[in-house]
Write a protein that binds this DNA or RNA. Structure first.
Length: 180
DNA sequence: GTGATGATAGAG
DNA sequence: TCTATCATCACA
């Protein structure tokens, strides 16, 4: 199975497009290959974005170079995995909300909190790592192309600001999306 | 030091 | 629909 890794310039397109484009791509993890079925975009002008109010220690990774992992904790307990887009100092990212196991794997994959828990991702060890290094434990690879009609675009979930922005994408037929 | 906030999950 | 729960941030 030939899966070339993604490259940093893949994340230099507009964040919304990257969020859409990331569907069907493959996340390689120590416990298997997972295809991405649900994403959300967070942009610099977006009030829901953690970096909207400026740089801080917690969101510093979002200001990093494209293809960096930004892991944040919300509600004190849940880790969320993002892929940083845009050049350095432009805090935009795509939240990976759900993945679908390529093979049958144990664990829950629907929902950003469960996803990172199942993968053993935590902020201390994974925040700021690159996601295009095929020698690492976590990286992104090309997968099947998803046709636009197979994708549903809708509003984001679980936020109180900017909730009307239709910046969430998921594969319509996937059973692993966290919510329709 | 104190209070507010939140990109969730799970229960009712 | 409602809320438990806690890391992090803003402010004093």
């Amino acid at each position: 199975m030939d899966r070339p890794p993604l490259t940093p310039e893949n994340f230099l397109h507009p964040t919304i497009e990257v969020a859409r484009w990331l569907l069907g791509k493959v996340l390689i993890t120590p416990i298997g290959a997972l295809s991405i079925v649900e994403t959300e975009a967070y942009c610099v002008d977006d009030p829901a974005c953690h970096a909207f109010r400026g740089k801080s220690k917690a969101n510093a990774a979002m200001f990093g170079p494209p293809g960096t992992a930004y892991v944040h904790i919300n509600y004190g307990i849940h880790h969320c995995l993002n892929v940083v887009c845009q050049p350095e100092d432009v805090p935009e990212a795509v939240l990976i909300r759900a993945v679908e196991p390529c093979h049958s794997q144990p664990g829950a994959w629907n929902g950003p909190g469960k996803l990172t828990k199942s993968l053993g991702i935590d902020k201390a060890t994974h925040n700021g790592m690159t996601l295009y290094d095929s020698t690492g434990e976590f990286w992104l690879a090309r997968g099947s192309e998803i046709s636009p009609e197979a994708v549903t675009q809708t509003t984001r979930i679980g936020i109180t600001k900017g909730a009307e922005l239709p910046w969430r994408f998921y594969i319509t037929t996937s059973r692993f999306v966290s919510r329709r």
